[in-house]
Simulated scan of single mutants.
Amino acid sequence: ARQKRITFDGRHFRIDLVFYNYILKCFVLIDLKIGDLTHQDLGQMQMYVHYYERELMNEGDNPPIGIVLCADKSESIVKYTLPENETQIFASKYKLYLPSEEELSQELQREYRALEYDKKIQISFT
């Protein structure tokens, strides 16, 4: 339900994640794929990027960036599907990684200490 739906010619398409990066001044479109990257995935992202360029960009915006995250990526598929000078569409392999119980505990303790420190700083300013 969090996907961004776009519709044209009576057909619906769904982009998994859409953000606007205020520093880069552009839309960032992310498509998540559970399998291997295909040329169709890259073509689909090209369509999304072109749609955002032509329909949703405002004056002063930079061109959108499209990212396809997949379980496995073939460099050859990327090389021969995208133009050589492509600067808007990227493909990357994600890694499934769960922290150990100890790593998770350490991270929670770091966050707790940071919150306590921030609270002390705020009290000293009041």
Rank of each mutant, 00 (worst) to 15 (best):
H39N: 14
F13N: 07
T38P: 07
E75W: 01
E111Y: 06
E86G: 04
I89G: 02
S76Y: 15
L29K: 00
F90C: 01
S74D: 13
Y52S: 09
E75S: 07
P83V: 07
V78I: 09
L115P: 03
L37E: 00
F90K: 06
D9Q: 12
Y80T: 08
D36K: 09
I65P: 03
R11T: 12
I123H: 10
S100N: 10
L69K: 05
R5Y: 01
I77E: 05
S124M: 06
L96Y: 11
F19L: 15
E84K: 13
Q46V: 04
R113C: 09
P83H: 11
K33Y: 12
T126E: 15
E111F: 08
I67S: 00
Y52E: 04
M57T: 04
F13S: 05
E53A: 02
Q122R: 13
Y80K: 09
I121V: 14
F19S: 03
L29I: 08
E101W: 01
I67Y: 03
E59Q: 12
R110Q: 10
L115S: 08
I23A: 08
R2G: 05
R110S: 10
K79D: 14
I15P: 03
Y112P: 00
D61L: 06
E116K: 12
F8Y: 15
I121R: 14
E59F: 08
L56C: 09
Y80H: 15
T87N: 13
D9C: 08
M47N: 07
E75D: 15
D31G: 12
L37V: 02
R54A: 06
H50T: 11
F90Y: 10
E86T: 08
Y117P: 01
Q106C: 02
L56K: 15
S76G: 02
A91R: 08
F8Q: 02
K119W: 10
Q46P: 00
F19D: 02
Y112T: 11
Y48P: 09
L69C: 03
K120R: 13
V78M: 07
K33M: 08
K93R: 15
A71V: 02
T87D: 10
F8K: 01
Q109F: 03
I30E: 11
L104Q: 14
S76W: 14
A1I: 01
L115E: 12
I121Q: 14
I6E: 02
R2Y: 05
L32H: 11
R11L: 11
V18Q: 04
D41S: 05
F13Y: 14
K79R: 15
Y52L: 07
I123P: 03
V49M: 04
R5D: 03
D61W: 07
I123M: 08
A91S: 14
N85T: 11
R113K: 12
E102T: 14
T7C: 05
Y48C: 03
R11V: 12
E103T: 14
V49P: 01
K93M: 06
K73Q: 11
R54I: 00
E53I: 06
S100T: 15
N21R: 06
P63N: 08
N85V: 02
G60D: 06
Q46N: 05
R14V: 10
M45C: 02
C70E: 04
L42N: 00
G66F: 06
E116L: 07
Q44G: 07
L98K: 14
R11A: 05
F27M: 00
R14T: 04
L115H: 14
Q46L: 12
C26T: 01
E103S: 13
